[in-house]
Amino acid sequence: MLTELPNTYLLSEEQRQFYMDNGYLVIKGLFDFATLYNYKQRFLQFCKGIVDRGSILVVKEASLKAKGMTGEELINKLQDIHYDDVFMTYTEHPRLIDVVTQFIGPDIRVMNSMFINKPSGSTRHPPHQDMFYFPFGPAEKIIAAWTAIDDVNVENGCLYVLPQSHKRNILYPHENIAAANNMYHGIVDPAVTSQPPVQLEMSPGDTVFFHPLLVHGSGANTSGRHRKCISAHYASAAVAYARAAPQGALAREVEGAARRVTGARISFEDTWRYKSKQVTVQPQSKL
């Protein structure tokens, strides 16, 4: 029998401490099957061209495009989904927001959001830190949420993390990685990349929250099936904007892309300001 999950989720002291110590926390079964099914069906509507993509960026897997793949077999992810009527029920889900606000406070904005499909044959996502992509901070006021829609494992390219890597408080230089997708920058320092990772194999509905300085990535999908998930990044509405030194090449890449699309000069920082969205769902649990 299906049971409706409550809109609240109060973290235990043990969960809080695990996150502080390791930079990530997996919560099992945070979302129910029916909710995940709605997100999967919405993604398929985009694949079939049934709904207008609006401001959503459709990212295709370059290596699969060369093989003639189309639709669900080609699309790697939908980027910036937090204004879509269906997907915003994830980014503003009370149960999810309840956890987020316990980590970074009640006044928050959705900064980034993705539905990731990762079809079979997709390449790896190199080890990286999300903070590399963000011209705002401090890092302690930013958190990511990543929810498995399918079973995810090593074979289909699950996430991996380097526990406690956030504690060094270092934003490492990132570079364009050969054979990686566009804007998939990665860390090349062998002192970082040679460390043994923890593979986060997860079941549908399981959700991992992680710190923006945590080193993480995902493997290639060699399974013969898709690996669907949905993800969002949140920040306190009070964060300050400033470009970090390692972001120079990325910033130019983003600014160039914005200029090609809009015809206007939009700074790296303003790109993030304009696409973010205030969360209207009120927090449920006491901090």
Rank of each mutant, 00 (worst) to 15 (best):
R227H: 11
C229S: 15
I97K: 12
G71A: 06
R16N: 03
I108L: 07
A242G: 01
V110S: 04
T271S: 07
E155A: 10
G54M: 00
G71K: 11
A145N: 08
D84I: 05
E73A: 15
V215T: 12
S285H: 05
S120M: 06
F43E: 05
G137M: 08
M1K: 12
N169G: 04
I266V: 15
N38V: 03
Y184P: 00
E269D: 10
F87S: 09
E201Q: 12
N22W: 00
R265E: 14
A66R: 14
V215K: 05
V58L: 10
N182R: 13
E255F: 03
K77T: 02
L11T: 07
S276L: 02
Q45Y: 07
G54Y: 02
S63Q: 14
K48T: 04
A66C: 00
Y24C: 06
K118D: 13
G248D: 15
E255M: 06
T193N: 04
P106W: 03
M1A: 13
S236E: 07
N76A: 10
Y19R: 09
T207Y: 06
I108M: 07
I230C: 08
D84E: 08
A235L: 00
L162W: 13
A220Q: 14
S194P: 01
L171N: 12
Q102L: 12
C229M: 10
L287F: 10
Q199W: 14
G49T: 04
P197V: 15
F87R: 08
N22T: 00
N112A: 11
E155T: 15
P173A: 00
F132D: 13
A220Y: 07
S236M: 05
V208N: 06
V152Y: 00
T8L: 01
G248V: 01
F33K: 15
D52K: 11
L171S: 13
A257W: 05
G224W: 01
D80N: 14
S55P: 04
A62E: 15
M69F: 12
Q17V: 09
P126D: 11
N169W: 01
I149S: 09
G205N: 03
K141N: 14
G248E: 14
V254N: 01
A191E: 15
H174I: 07
H166N: 14
P94W: 01
M88W: 02
